[in-house]
Design a protein around this nucleic acid. Structure first.
Lengths: 248, 248
DNA sequence: GAGAATCATGTCAGTATCTGGCATGATTGT
DNA sequence: ACAATCATGCCAGATACTGACATGATTCTC
């Protein structure tokens, strides 16, 4: 029903409430209508959510009347900040991308930030994050030519793809190549390669029994199978992209 | 923080999850069966709740086998990462840049990461960070033409400029325009504008008594004065850059 | 190694709960 | 007086939550 609206993770009411807390904390001041819009729910539902938060003890204040709004009573702060796997990856990825722009101002000591952030993860998560990091490569920005012919991607394909990637599952895809011809593939998604703003998946094509790379915006259909795959040696994959690509 | 009512507060999954968090926090160690019993739900539901918490980023650990159990991982929060002002800004900036690439995959929930990270700063610093954030705008990547004529910048100029920007000090600069002619200016650096990989400063030019924008790599010399300035209304500044620029 | 304890995940049908739309009241600034 | 806003009630339909049962995986004990 609602669009994907980057506002917060996943689905379900719980996640939405979490997002709502963050929105309230972030903005000094908003109106209920704004919040409802940001969260992609009706005004009625938003008010219900506010009521629920109050019920849980979050001091949400409201002022009626013109110029009114909703806000957090001051002196309230969120406790610890927790990131899930995807968020953690997104964070590290952002840092890597920013670093790649080699901006002079503000970003020159991103390396140290990166290290600090990476160390902030709990040992148990760290292992998983580390292994995923190695499998995400970033390269140079894509050429204008490539960017121009970029197609929009849909969560309906990206989400399963990510799922297959992170949990090392074999995926069955339908892919359209440059010429417009399409084919069915059975792939092991080993690496993700990012060339702003284009994502590729470097995979082992089981039918062709060889390494193949796919632009994810050209993947039409995807189905994640139940069977998993083992990581193969990286060389073959990495050598298919520009040599200066580096893991995040 | 919360808990206006006891842990066992009535209805709804949200309340139960809150209770579950508390239970996990207060017990060093428990089994899923125990928790399910305490919360009055089936074991299956309890596991679903745990999965949900993990999805939200709460580091719930589990150990299978005899003597195993579930528990909260310690020491995971980003709140323990200590960043200085510049690093903090760099971090937020990185997220903003990444978000601006509008890439799908991994980055689609960058928004929520941004909010969480912004929240991770201590309340005392939060205010300052927030106000700085509003004064950094990011736009589209610069055209190849602009990038080509980019000059290297030196810490000798960027550092004082940042200093003037963050502490709202008036700066005296020598600036070289497109034609190669240079001039002296007395500026109030109100906004920074980033068009990858080029930085601009949007300032009030005191000698011309008007808004002017300066490409940072064209600033030859800079001297930070002792006098500070008051923030002026944003409209004039923001309207000098592309309309879709947004604060980080 | 066999067996038991425990975490983790899949499936399914019934139902509790959530959602959007609409209506109403209350409060406040212009 | 009017418009903006918060706050709540009600209702029908859609959603997702729940428990029961089954299975797999891991780890400890004997």
């Amino acid at each position: 029903m609602n669009e994907t609206h980057g506002t917060g993770n996943g689905h379900g009411r719980v996640a939405r409430l979490e997002a709502l807390k963050l929105l309230l904390a972030e903005r000094e001041y908003t109106t209920a209508a704004d919040l409802a819009d940001d969260l992609g729910v009706s005004l009625r539902t938003l008010h219900r959510d506010l009521a629920l938060l109050r019920n849980l003890g979050v001091p949400v204040g409201g002022l009626a009347g013109r110029g009114g709004g909703v806000f957090l009573e001051r002196g309230w702060s969120l406790g610890r900040v927790h990131l899930n796997e995807h968020e953690a990856m997104g964070l590290l990825l952002s840092l890597a991308i920013a670093q790649q722009t080699r901006s002079p101002l503000l970003l020159d000591d991103i390396r140290s930030v990166e290290r600090k952030v990476a160390q902030a993860f709990a040992p148990s998560q760290a292992a998983k994050i580390r292994s995923l990091r190695r499998r995400v490569l970033i390269g140079r920005p894509a050429s204008p030519n490539v960017v121009e012919h970029l197609r929009p991607t849909h969560p309906a394909t990206t989400r399963p793809l990510l799922e297959a990637f992170t949990s090392q599952r074999i995926a069955k895809i339908r892919y359209t190549d440059q010429t417009g011809a399409w084919s069915s593939r059975l792939i092991e998604p080993h690496y993700l390669y990012y060339s702003t703003p284009v994502w590729y998946v470097l995979a082992w094509d089981q039918l062709r029994d060889d390494v193949r790379s796919f632009r994810i915006d050209r993947i039409n259909q995807i189905e994640v199978t139940a069977s998993t795959f083992r990581i193969r040696p990286p060389d073959r994959f990495v050598s298919t992209v520009e040599f200066d690509a580096r893991p995040i």
